[in-house]
């Protein structure tokens, strides 16, 4: 009897705690169902239908996977845009990561006027928005000035095999644009660096480690989690950026007579799939790397 008596309140306490916990997240769960899960399912439903929208109603005509096959095998633009997006993402991510890491390490040092530089380096957090970046690129203010049009560089590019030329060309024309996407990443790296105890560096230096060794053996391993977070963040921001060519194409097709909502939805899902695969590849790669360095 006494055993049961002391057991019961224990259970009800746990249940009570769980119920209160659910109470706090309830609104989010409802919101997820209403504003994410349901529209996602509906978009998928549209993607396997021919959708015609009139003022009064939405007509669906089931077409199986026709929209998907059209996007992948008939549409002359979509696959090309997807390949371009994949290349650009795979080129941009390492640049953003390395650049953000370098800047964070600079900002972790002590030097005069540090505050001024910090304010400048975090400007991208505030400014990177679609229309602004678009205006800046249109005026030529965002690309590495003139490097890609130098005769020597053009000659060099022509010698490269096709598969290599596109990424290198992209790198040269958009280098500065890529840097504009590294504001938050610098912030995250900086916070990880500041968590490393300074005495660890001192101990390593006393033991005779060079700064080169300290970087590879102490700093880099301590940044591995931040690197994974930053890589995911970078891929997601680049893929959601409203001036992204694939997104623009899908958006245009939504209102196009030839395209329509069904077709645009199918492309949205293919794009999402490619993005998840990219995320997966980069994630697995970095996790492997993090395990080896740790």
């Amino acid at each position: 009897m006494t055993g049961r008596g002391s057991f019961r309140p224990e259970i009800s306490l746990r249940v009570r705690e769980a119920l209160h916990g659910y109470g706090f997240i309830l609104i989010w769960v409802l919101g997820f169902a209403l504003f994410t899960a349901l529209p996602l399912a509906q978009t998928f439903h549209y993607s396997v239908n021919q959708v015609t929208v009139s003022a009064a109603s939405i007509n669906l005509n089931f077409v199986e996977w026709a929209n998907y096959t059209r996007a992948l095998f008939t549409d002359p633009n979509f696959v090309e845009l997807l390949v371009g997006y994949t290349i650009e993402t795979l080129v941009s991510v390492p640049i953003v990561l390395i650049f953000a890491m370098i800047i964070a390490m600079f900002l972790n040092l002590k030097f005069r006027l540090k505050g001024v530089f910090r304010v400048i380096f975090f400007l991208p957090i505030v400014i990177t928005s679609g229309p602004v970046i678009k205006e800046l690129t249109a005026q030529g203010a965002a690309s590495a000035p003139g490097i890609a049009s130098l005769p020597a560089v053009i000659d060099f590019l022509e010698q490269l095999p096709r598969a290599l030329r596109t990424p290198v060309e992209y790198l040269l024309t958009s280098f500065i644009l890529i840097l504009w996407f590294s504001g938050v990443q610098i912030l995250i790296y900086l916070s990880s660096l500041q968590k490393v105890d300074r005495s660890v560096y001192e101990a390593a230096a006393i033991d005779g480690a060079s700064s080169w060794e300290i970087f590879w053996k102490i700093i880099l391993p301590s940044l591995s989690t931040a690197t994974v977070v930053n890589a995911v963040y970078t891929i997601v921001t680049l893929s959601h950026f409203s001036e992204n060519k694939v997104i623009r194409y899908i958006y245009d097709q939504t209102y196009d007579v030839q395209g329509g909502i069904g077709y645009a939805s199918a492309m949205a899902f293919i794009y999402f799939g490619v993005m998840v695969v990219l995320l997966g590849i980069v994630y697995l790669f970095l996790i492997q790397w993090a395990k080896r360095t740790a």
Partner: peptide, 23 residues
């Protein structure tokens, strides 16, 4: 599960949910 779904809301591109919402 909640954390996984949270991550999902961050990753899912807006164009995968925006049309039904708009309609």
């Amino acid at each position: 599960l909640v954390f996984a779904l949270l991550l999902a809301t961050f990753i899912i591109p807006p164009q995968n949910t925006v049309i039904p919402q708009m309609l």
